[in-house]
């Protein structure tokens, strides 16, 4: 059983009691963001750091975290600084130092490129390529461009391999005939629906 002792609903920080031990958690709710705290800390959280006292119980960490996430969403409704994921990415990159951008490129190349995360990779690269600090740093800019070219090339290569493997090209050639068949099936289904029963009488209309 997990007992919520204190919470800051606007940012999702919370102190949770479990197995006689109090733990401070904060987003992102990974293991690294959990810290054992003392009873004095819990009191300080409430009396000095703006937390609210709480007394709610949860069976699992997932239920607890879901509840915290809901409270964050609810309590920030009136704030005018909320951002969507897309806006957030752009906004953080806008003032990001080139060293951070370089690290982003390193990691994207190391993880996203081999995993085929084209959308994430290309969206981020396109945003980086519009940044003044990237344009001012020739090496960084060229690297982002090269990564974008590599991403597009790999994506096209993989798509081409798949088309060959699954015969998509062949299907594309046969498309007019398949389209006719689909239209016939659709017409029969409309007829069945209008008659109100499944076993429609009459000739089978689909061409062989």
């Amino acid at each position: 059983m997990l007992e919520l002792l204190a919470i800051s609903p606007e940012d999702g920080w919370a102190v949770v009691q479990s197995d006689g031990k109090a733990t401070l958690i904060r987003p992102p709710y990974s293991g690294a963001n959990r810290q054992t705290v003392t009873a004095d800390d819990v009191e300080a959280a409430v009396n000095k750091h703006g937390f609210s006292a709480a007394s709610e119980s949860f069976d699992t960490w997932k239920e607890l975290v879901d509840s915290l996430e809901r409270q964050v969403a609810q309590s920030r409704q009136g704030l005018d600084r909320n951002l969507s994921d897309e806006e957030l990415g752009k906004a953080v990159l806008r003032d990001a130092p080139t060293e951070i951008l370089r690290q982003f490129l390193d990691r994207a190349e190391r993880e996203w490129l081999p995993q085929g995360k084209w959308s994430a990779l290309e969206n981020m690269l396109l945003d980086i390529l519009t940044l003044p600090q990237a344009k001012d740093d020739g090496q960084l800019f060229e690297r982002a461009q090269a990564l974008l070219r590599e991403s597009k090339a790999r994506k096209e290569r993989i798509a081409s391999d798949r088309r060959r493997k699954f015969g998509v090209d062949a299907i594309r050639e046969d498309f007019p005939r398949l389209k006719d068949q689909a239209e016939d099936v659709y017409a029969v289904s409309i007829e069945i629906a209008e008659r109100g029963f499944v076993l429609a009488s009459g000739p089978h209309r689909c061409r062989p």
Partner: peptide
């Protein structure tokens, strides 16, 4: 957080932190 926003998307708490 920005890096993750392009890939996995962020939870409410993470998005609030980022904002």
């Amino acid at each position: 957080l920005a890096f993750r926003s392009y890939d996995l998307g962020l939870s409410e708490g993470e998005r609030a932190l980022g904002a």
